[in-house]
Design a protein around this nucleic acid. Sequence first.
DNA 1: AAGCATTCCAACCGCTAAACG
DNA 2: TCGTTTAGCGGTTGGAATGCT
Length: 551
Amino acid sequence: MIEMTSDSDKRKAARCRKNSPGAEEVSSGGNSSGGSCLKKGPWTSAEDAILVEYVTKHGEGNWNAVQKHSGLSRCGKSCRLRWANHLRPDLKKGSFTPEEENRIIELHAKMGNKWARMAAELPGRTDNEIKNYWNTRIKRLLRAGLPIYPPSVSRQARNDSQQSEEMMTCQSGDMHHSESSDTNSFQIPEVEFKNFGLDPALLDLAPASLLPKGVSSSNSYGFMFSSLNPQKRLREVDSQFHVTVPSTSITFPKFEQHEDDPFGRLVPVQPLWSPPIYDPDLNINGTSAIDVLGSHAPINGNSSSSEPVSEAMKLELPSLQYSASQVGSWATPSSPLPSLESVDTLIQSPLSEHTQSNCPSPRSSGLLEAIVYESQSLKCSNYNSHQQGLDTSVMAGDVVESSSRNVCEPKWDACGDPISPLSHSAASVFVEFTPVSGGSSSDEPQSAEPETIPGKFDWISAELDGKKDISCPLEYLRPDALLDSYWFSHRIGRSKDESITGDFGALLGDDFNYEHKQGSALPCDESNQSSGLGTSTWDTICGVYPFSKNN
DNA sequence: AAGCATTCCAACCGCTAAACG
DNA sequence: TCGTTTAGCGGTTGGAATGCT
């Protein structure tokens, strides 16, 4: 089976052309490594045919023999990849189904970046495919500061982590704990950052996808289960510091496309997240709570994600942690979490209007979209619930919240319009994803978070595009927070010809001229809407972002 | 419509671990 | 025990497709 599409052929041809003059030349038999010229670049149909024929005759394996016996000018590794990723007859083509997406997330929570093993669980899918999927689509969630793992998984991981931690402590003192098990033990991975000369506090803020190369992927997704082998990790542990990831739990309902919803929106009806089969304990209380894509802490890349807190300070977010039993009652969580409908009603911002009206509903085929959509709704609701008590119930433990608020008082006031999307993007992001130590409960020992995260909420100065010296609360500039709003407005409220409304536009408007926005006190009014977030603007943000900049 | 930016994806590289002789 | 081969993984690259201005 030669599955060369005309597209891929074109692509390959183009790439061949570009790749190297040598690529064509070597295809006639040359060798490159060790004197033998092996062809690189896209495979041709002829090569595929040869490979298929060979494998059909001889079976898989012994890939280095392919070149010898078939005349292919490809190294065995290349042959193996080509076969595994494209020529295998049992490959499933096309985009991932929602079920597969679900499965991938589930598997990733279970295995970490064990792509091959994940692929084994997904018939017809390849590790490369899954990896690409994860590294691209999941980034959406990361950028949006949305959770990826079901909180149930997170909770289990946290529990296991604590247990193993205790064990480790007992057994070997304060040693770095390694992955206890690849498969059956959920452990919130320590996020290990190599020496980037960065302030851990800053690193902590980095969404994985925005981290400098070298910290990305497996262990850069923050909370994700590092795929580093224990040996590797031990080797590298020298210059690393550890971030124990606190996680929060947000339960998400299952989505269903309401027939009577003119916009085909997915609405929560049942737990989306079926209890992972690999751990019955995850099915807490026998509920089918989905606890969608939980541990958003790390993912959202914001303060809550991977606080460089001491292990003793593993933080919970009670205020955001909905018990599994609440899942079924999505509309009536114990905390003042409004129903989805209420959310739409409560968030009477332009965005919410969009949410109701022309909200690009999550495609029914897109689990991620659904998650994003619903998560945003949830965040809205969280915002509201938090907003209510923000001024009056700033816990001592809500250091992040309170301190940031204090520090940014003028800005908060300026943009803290509860109706404004800015409120959401900036303030609510704070509120929602900040590892509120002990959350809203004051019984939790109030950690000295500001001390463990030095300067986290300091105002920062950064030169943007070499033009402006901006000064603003670091939190304001965090891409995740900004993107959160961006994503929000895009996924939910922004139609094609609409501009980003409110604060985010204000924040990211022309040339990211924060100085200007400061001057205008980050107005949230319509007049200050940006014409949209230019891509270059976003590049600017990323480029300016402290951890990369400091690098 | 054109130009630019971003996203997606195939393919690769370098490295490591496991398997095997 | 050691060397070789194979498999797997993280990360990267770059063209095509797509979206935005």
